[in-house]
Simulated scan of single mutants.
Amino acid sequence: MNDNNDTYHVPDSEYHVPVLFRETLEGLQVRPDGVYVDCTFGGGGHSRGILQQLGPDGRLVVFDQDADAAANVPEDERILFVPHNFRHLQRFLRLHKYTQVTGVLADLGVSSHQFDEAERGFSIRFDGPLDMRMDRRQPLTAADIIKTYSQQQLHKLFEQYGEVTNAKTLAAHLVQFRQQASLTTIDSFRALLQPVIKGNPNKYLAQVFQALRMEVNDEMGALKDMLQQAAEVLQPGGRLAVITFHSIEDRMVKNFFKQGTFEEVPDNPFSTQQREEVWKVVTKKPVTAGEEELKRNPRSRSAKLRVAEKL
């Protein structure tokens, strides 16, 4: 990997600061004539880094289901913007006549812009509609989930995606009192949660909001679809780099790279079944942010980068 930091200059952006910028570009090993895919364009930070290393014959396909991201696409004939969820990766690559690509990148973090826009409903810092849709063309909102999911569904959701300590109590509380609250705004939702908040209120609310956001946008389902399709579209020797911000996401990527499946497969010394090797893992351990980046961008604290090469 290249140690020359000047080669990888982190672009300034109020929309979103790309995490693990240099480490991701090093992991991708960008080839000047390659075809690359940025599954989560956002503010375009990682994409600009890829474009800097692409030659005139290189190409970059960028996906983002959030319409706001389209405004960040640079004027560059080598770039193609696809305004859809990355779970449709293979379909849109085929549509644009790309059968195989050289590298795929996915940064699974929510952009700073989305957190900072009150009307999107992602942040506990502002009042706004209880929405949380990345793609505003889809019907399901966070308010719909709170109002319609069963107690068991809510319990599982907050426990798995939010790691909320009293997920069962929280689910029971919501089901008991949700008919009495308007539940269209973040403030009304926070007021409803008050009696069951445990520990640090900001941390608790952040965990609840994270769980709802992941469910609204089916983030785990989309990640599974993307990983499986990336294995199909990458050419041998091509690389897949994924940045996760949640232990469930990281475990899913780790298992997929290691054994081509999403579940933990115990090592069985007596098994004669041969698994087809799909990936060579490049990062034996996940790459995390260094001290300098943590000071500059505290949101990078939970970021983990894993890279694998298609065999």
Rank of each mutant, 00 (worst) to 15 (best):
V175G: 07
E159C: 01
Q176V: 12
Q153W: 01
A142S: 01
T165D: 09
H155P: 00
E159F: 06
Q151D: 10
K168N: 01
Q153I: 03
A172K: 15
E159A: 12
H173N: 08
I145A: 10
E159Q: 15
L174M: 15
Q176P: 02
T148C: 10
A167K: 04
D144K: 02
H155E: 03
G162K: 05
Q160I: 14
R178C: 10
V164P: 07
L157I: 09
A142N: 03
K168I: 00
V164M: 04
L154D: 07
A171W: 00
L170C: 01
H155R: 03
G162I: 02
L157P: 05
A167Y: 07
A167P: 03
D144A: 15
Q151N: 11
Q179C: 13
L174I: 15
N166P: 10
Y149V: 07
G162Y: 08
Y149A: 15
E159N: 11
Q179K: 14
T165F: 12
V175W: 06
I145M: 11
K156P: 06
F158Y: 03
A172I: 04
Y149P: 02
V175A: 06
T169V: 13
I146C: 02
N166F: 04
Y161W: 10
S150V: 13
Q152V: 12
A143Y: 05
A172Y: 07
Y149M: 15
T165E: 00
F158N: 05
D144H: 15
A143F: 06
I146E: 07
D144C: 11
R178D: 01
A171T: 03
A142M: 03
L154A: 11
Q176F: 09
D144F: 08
A172T: 08
Q179M: 10
Y161E: 01
A171F: 03
Q160R: 13
A143T: 00
Y161V: 01
T169L: 11
E163L: 08
F158K: 03
A143L: 06
H173P: 08
L154M: 14
S150C: 13
K156R: 14
K156H: 08
K147Y: 12
N166A: 07
V164E: 04
T148G: 09
E159M: 10
Q153M: 14
F177R: 12
A142Q: 03
Q152N: 12
G162W: 05
A142C: 07
T169Q: 11
T148Q: 13
H155L: 00
Q179P: 04
Q151M: 08
H173A: 06
V175S: 07
A171G: 08
D144Q: 13
T165L: 09
T169D: 07
Y149H: 14
H173S: 11
A167W: 04
T148D: 12
